[in-house]
Design a protein around this nucleic acid. Structure first.
Lengths: 352, 352
DNA sequence: CTGAAAGCGCTTACAG
DNA sequence: CTGAAAGCGCTTACAG
């Protein structure tokens, strides 16, 4: 494991007993060196270290933790590994946990297989479980209850509204409110809602916030919005956005602003409009969601909502770590992350 | 863990001893039920299962594996979690391993911290280690040697040319050869190589294959190619591609085809050209690499090389699993994956 | 069909 | 400063 290669074929050492025999010391002594305990002759320490280099001995983690040493392990459940914001949160979280000397166990929860994952995490005696993304609500609620009952701290990132769950999540209603303020300021009064036909909690919350933002201005949300959805099954990708936009143009009576469920749909819609001769933003403004790198690809660049992932994950870690080793708190912690509206060229004054 | 919630506050059971006492059976019997061994009274089995539902008892994995049960765990090292092809391979690999009842331990190797990760994997007694992506060559070579010496099977996905490493990798030279054949067929003779100024093995291999493809036709690769690079530090993203293309247009004397190091750079370059009034593919053809979803976003859609990730990962699993529990093979296995050229609108006949 | 005993590879009091 | 003994939570022969 050191930079110097073992010179000669060395014996396969499989336990501390074998290793201690190899070094010519008691197992106790070896253990103390390995754990950096005080009160050892420098020469002893050196002897052990050299032997480690020679044999590549690595203590068995299973024996270590069996004997009561904390596992310093956190289980992370992700919804999937193909959604960019989820993966970015995962990467940030693993990085931050590592800096605090925690190991992460990462598992994708495939629909209906959540129990198996939680069970695995519990058998590995994780010190906490984090959920990233959107899950089946009933299942997630059950997992949270199970963990609480087992006195294993948990944290839900992004899935708002789980009963009893410690949660750190983007304030999605606030995000839509910010976007609506922006569009209203630009004079827009008629909005096309692209691919919002999902039952996912996150989407319903956003939809409701859009409607509330309209009614709060004394307008009728029914008259001000039109739902523009793709075919089933939803894919929420570029091609779906393009098809939605083309269909909308064919039907005519276009709104002045498109609000898309995500950036991919928004960019596809922009392309669809442009291909039909509709100008963005002169004829129609478009806004996306997530502020992915691809927002810079179209012309004009896409106005979007940034989830502030680094801050989210940092807050998540700050909420989670103090819970470790504590009895479960009576009341769940919920922390909302303030979104960031990133205005780019795709939104402009409403066509008069 | 079952669908029925525990009705009342249940005692916290922390070991099989406590659990056996709770059920009123010997630990041995409980163990046998847990492991599905034959020769037990149905009533006994039922009693244990009910008690599991009541208490949520999950055996300690550390004790389990200490006692010799195989860990059925594979360690996966990834280069990072922000490169789409890497993440897609990771997702596919974890999925396939899970189907074979293996658990994956996933770790990002941050530069210079590889030893720590390997050490952790060894301490967890993983049955194999898989590397996905491109690493420091010396470090990776060292890790492979270490694992071989420790009789832990390994597999390298994508990083070609590691001494002694079992490798499954896209045949990158072949990919470039296919692309060059395509472009030559279209009449192209002058090629702009975008952002190939990397020392990474994968990029150097591709560059060499481009040159060989030219010289094989009796042409001078020096006269036929021009290196178009961005500023340092390289970002290999959309903006870099755009800047490279604009600079190239300003300098004049443009080649008829752009070959980009990846899709992002290619799409950026396409935008840069179009903004400068250069038509794609009428004036210049462009090809990318990786065949990401974003290839469909620009107009025209981007010609690219598909890595055939599903096949790669499937082959990887087929190479890896037979090695488990076997003594290390004398000779490393190397398997090349045939790439797939996906021709789209961004490549067309060379301007005459 | 079920139970008491040994042992996996470590750490941690406790002696010396 | 170092060593012999007990014990962590399981499984697996071995008895009964």
């Amino acid at each position: 494991m050191s930079t110097s290669q073992p010179k000669k074929p060395t014996p396969q050492i499989r336990s501390s007993t074998e290793f201690a025999r190899y070094v010519g010391l008691a197992r106790t002594t070896v253990s103390r060196v390995l754990n950096g305990q005080p009160g050892l002759k420098p020469k002893t320490i050196e002897r052990v270290q050299r032997a480690i280099e020679e044999t590549g001995f690595v203590p068995n983690a299973y024996a270590l933790h069996l004997k009561g040493k904390r596992t310093a392990t956190v289980g992370i459940c992700v919804e999937n590994l193909l959604t960019p914001p989820v993966v970015r949160k995962l990467a940030a979280l693993q990085h931050q946990l590592r800096e605090k000397n925690f190991t992460s166990l990462i598992e994708v929860i495939e629909a209906g297989h959540g129990d198996k994952v939680i069970r695995h995490f519990l058998s590995m005696r994780v010190e906490a479980v984090v959920f990233i993304g959107h899950f089946n609500e009933d299942e997630l609620t059950r997992h949270v209850a199970e963990l609480t009952q087992r006195e294993t701290p948990h944290l839900v990132i992004d899935h708002f509204g789980i009963k009893g769950a410690n949660t750190v999540t983007l304030d999605r209603p606030r995000a839509m409110q910010m976007l609506m303020d922006h569009l209203f300021d630009l004079g827009h009064r008629r909005f096309g809602l692209l691919a919002f036909n999902s039952q996912a909690r996150s989407v319903r919350d956003r939809l409701r916030a859009i409607h509330e933002s309209i009614t709060a201005r004394g307008l009728s949300s029914e008259q001000c919005t039109v739902a523009l959805d793709g075919e089933y099954p939803r894919t929420n990708d570029f091609e779906e956005g393009r098809r939605i936009a083309r269909t909308a143009v064919e039907r005519g009576n276009l709104p002045t602003a498109f609000i898309a469920v995500n950036d991919e749909v928004a960019i596809g819609a922009m392309r669809g409009l442009q291909e039909s001769g509709v100008r963005v933003p002169e004829d129609i403004s478009i806004a996306g969601f997530n502020n992915l790198d691809v927002c810079l690809m179209p012309t004009p660049a896409l106005t979007s909502i940034d989830q502030r992932i680094e801050e989210t994950v940092q807050d998540a870690v700050e909420v989670l770590l103090p819970q470790l080793g504590q009895p479960p708190a009576a009341k769940a912690l919920v922390k909302m992350i303030e979104p960031l509206l990133v205005v780019r060229g795709s939104t402009g004054p409403a066509k008069s």
